[in-house]
């Protein structure tokens, strides 16, 4: 199935969780905040939250800024 992650179309298997997606992207879960369909996801849901066809996933983290 297809999702959109940070604006990029991506194919993933059915039933993949958010934390599995992050592992695949080599992003430690505690360094990013995830928004799915404009809703912020609590970190303790990453393990259980399964992604759905067409989900808009935004992965955001802190960078340098003034």
């Amino acid at each position: 199935m297809q999702i959109f992650c940070n604006g990029r179309q991506q194919d993933i298997d059915e039933g993949v969780t958010l934390s599995q997606l992050l592992v695949g992207l080599e992003l430690p879960a505690d360094t990013v905040v995830a928004e799915i369909n404009k809703k912020i996801i609590d970190r303790d849901q990453y393990e259980t939250l399964k992604l759905n066809q067409g989900d808009q996933v935004e992965l955001i983290r802190f960078v340098g800024g003034g």
Binding site: L25, T31, I60, R61, V63, G64
Partner: peptide, 19 residues
Amino acid sequence: VTVALRRVDLENPEDDIMS
């Protein structure tokens, strides 16, 4: 210290600044 928020660049993820 101030920090900004950005989308992770999936092609080239930088270090996490918090670390």
